[in-house]
Computed example of a mutant assay.
Amino acid sequence: MAPPPPAPVEVTLPLTPPQVVETTTALVWPADDPSAPAVILAHGAGTDMRHRHMHRHATDLAAAGAAVALFNFAYTESGRKRPDPAPRLESAWRDVIVGLRPHLGGDRRLVVGGRSMGGRIASMVAAADAAELGIAGVACIAYPLHPPGKPDRLRVGHWPALTVPTLLVCGSRDAMAPTETLRECVATHMPQGIATVHVLAGADHSFRVRKADGRTEDEVFAETAEVLVDWLGKL
């Protein structure tokens, strides 16, 4: 078993107006291996970068040798609960990528992603500006294919513009991303050959599992880490 990664370094990053705060906070796990990828992950709508799920994803990847960073969106940094409009979230993502490059290693392959909303916004930024921002891949964990209870409002309008490898890790019981619908949308809306879909048996949107599924939450997160590390190695 790999030793646990060291504690992360906290850094402050400037944000481009208009945002509700002028700066936001990020946590950075540097990497010693210059060939290791850099991964920036954003939190979901109802959490922040210090949520235990985000910390687990980050430390799993850091333990595998990647340079990793988490950050707060501006609304979260200010203590608000309601997410900002998508354009402001995208703007924050762009600022964070630029601001974190020196801390992660500017020459590393860069992957952006995150949980739920954070991964969705990352994919929107990549669809628009992957080449300009040097994005080599997108890793979406629990992608919210549609809002809760609104399966007709699919969030795939930007998918045809994606040009970099894209990983989608979703639970088989995720009501916001039914497996069959997710696979159909990937086949219909994503450019051929760029998407990898991995389904976590028994997991819901929050990666909770039932006793009847015969597995634990820890096993779900360990499987997620294994999938992420394997996919990063193939970029």
Rank of each mutant, 00 (worst) to 15 (best):
M1N: 10
M1T: 14
P4Q: 04
P5N: 04
V9R: 14
E10L: 04
V11Y: 13
T12Q: 14
L13R: 05
V21Y: 11
T25C: 08
T25L: 11
A26D: 11
V28Y: 12
D33N: 13
V39K: 01
A45W: 06
H57G: 00
A63S: 14
G65N: 12
F73P: 02
A74Y: 03
Y75P: 02
Y75G: 02
T76A: 15
E77A: 14
K81A: 14
R82W: 05
R88K: 10
L89S: 08
S91Q: 15
W93M: 13
W93P: 02
V98H: 13
L100Y: 11
L104W: 12
D107Q: 11
V112D: 09
G119S: 06
S123C: 12
A126E: 11
G134Y: 07
I141T: 05
H146F: 13
P147T: 03
G149V: 02
R153N: 10
R153K: 14
R155I: 00
W159D: 02
G171C: 09
G171H: 09
G171K: 08
M176G: 02
A177V: 06
P178V: 03
A187Q: 10
G193V: 05
V197K: 04
L200A: 12
D204P: 01
H205K: 00
H205A: 00
S206Q: 07
A212G: 01
T216V: 00
E217H: 03
A222T: 14
E223R: 04
E226H: 15
E226G: 15
V229G: 10
W231D: 08
G233K: 08
